[in-house]
Design a protein around this nucleic acid. Structure first.
Lengths: 192, 192
DNA sequence: CTCGATTGTCTAGCGATGCTAGGATTGACC
DNA sequence: GGTCAATCCTAGCATCGCTAGACAATCGAG
């Protein structure tokens, strides 16, 4: 069975290579620049090989989104763990979220802007996506305020962060005032 | 000079037809379905005619965005004018904004999600875009709270609405609780 | 060790896309 | 009516995501 195992391992390696390369290309020049041809050339295989791993480009985006969700979750938890006091924790969360969006715009797009064919806000939502939301909920649930459902509050806070992130990157909001915007957001939305 | 005038009039008519058709197609099946071929066929001209009016698809999207901004501005002003009291006015504004985004998703995408080649948040930003922001500012400036710059507050409120609108339509947020989310947003962000 | 069968990979190509060059046709003016 | 410029269309380019079918490598049975 060792031959089989080696093959499976190699296949898994190649799949990781595909995702890493796709991500690299996307971060460099955006997802439109991630063509199946360019991707295939980079991994030194022909195009059809990609389709033996993923149904198509959409599924590649979806896979990157899941990867990214896991990373975001740990980034958020790391940021909030280092802060003390609810105010500082929420502020750290917001900064970490926007920092992730600014640092990895392609991954962020895969997660929240593009169609990766993933189910959201459902039972069959992939675990990493649920967990990323859970990471938000952990810090935001406490500051939802009386009579406000923590999940709903988290959704609203998340949406506000998402709006700032996307509008900023799309050039709709000047990036200089990001810090003041997050301060305002934290101070107004969170009940401390 | 009457011949010239007629020609210019016909040209302007055709340009309006192009935009209306593009918008119709986009609202039906999304902007990806708005191909230059399909668009040309619908207006009963050949493809190159489109390029005598617009530099390309991007510029068509930009033109639709400008149209949409004007409509959104009037929709927002109509909604806020009918409300009395600052709380009701802000709530009406939020509802009108999200209503517009839900009713005209393609136009909304053209305005805030896609690349229409338009400059934003600058001096040379097209007037309708500035005016749409002004429409937001008119109702939100009063509830920014002491010591908070009205423009900054408007940006944040807008970003929050934008986040709710896009995440909802992308299937990231269940649409049922939209009303509760806007209530929360209004109550927390606005200083009454 | 040989020889089918299976697995893996690649070449080549399909239908679409946005966009454009260059020829044809129309229509205004003298 | 003839000339010329403006107008429009046919045809095609490069590129896209994706796939069929040929080819080569590998495996297991005799």
């Amino acid at each position: 069975m060792s031959v089989q195992e080696r093959k499976e391992r190699e296949r898994a390696d190649r799949e990781r290579l595909i995702l890493a390369t796709a991500r690299e290309l996307a971060e460099q020049d955006g997802w439109d620049a991630v063509t199946t041809r360019k991707l295939a050339e980079r991994i030194e295989y022909s195009q059809p090989v990609l389709y033996s791993h993923f149904r198509g480009k959409r599924e590649i985006i979806g896979a990157v989104a899941i990867e990214g969700a896991a990373e975001m979750a740990t980034a958020l938890r790391a940021a909030t763990a280092a802060a003390d006091g609810p105010r500082a924790r929420v502020a750290a969360l917001a900064r970490a979220y926007l920092g992730f969006a600014a640092r990895c715009p392609a991954v962020y797009d895969a997660m929240f802007r593009l169609d990766g064919g993933l189910p959201f806000a459902r039972e069959d939502t992939p675990e990493p996506l649920k967990d990323a939301f859970a990471a938000l909920l952990e810090s935001l649930g406490d500051v939802a305020g009386d009579g406000v459902h923590p999940g709903l509050f988290t959704e609203v806070f998340w949406a506000a962060l998402h709006g700032v992130a996307t509008l900023t990157r799309a050039g709709r909001l000047p990036p200089e005032d990001t810090e003041r915007r997050t301060e305002l957001l934290v101070d107004r939305l969170a009940v401390l």
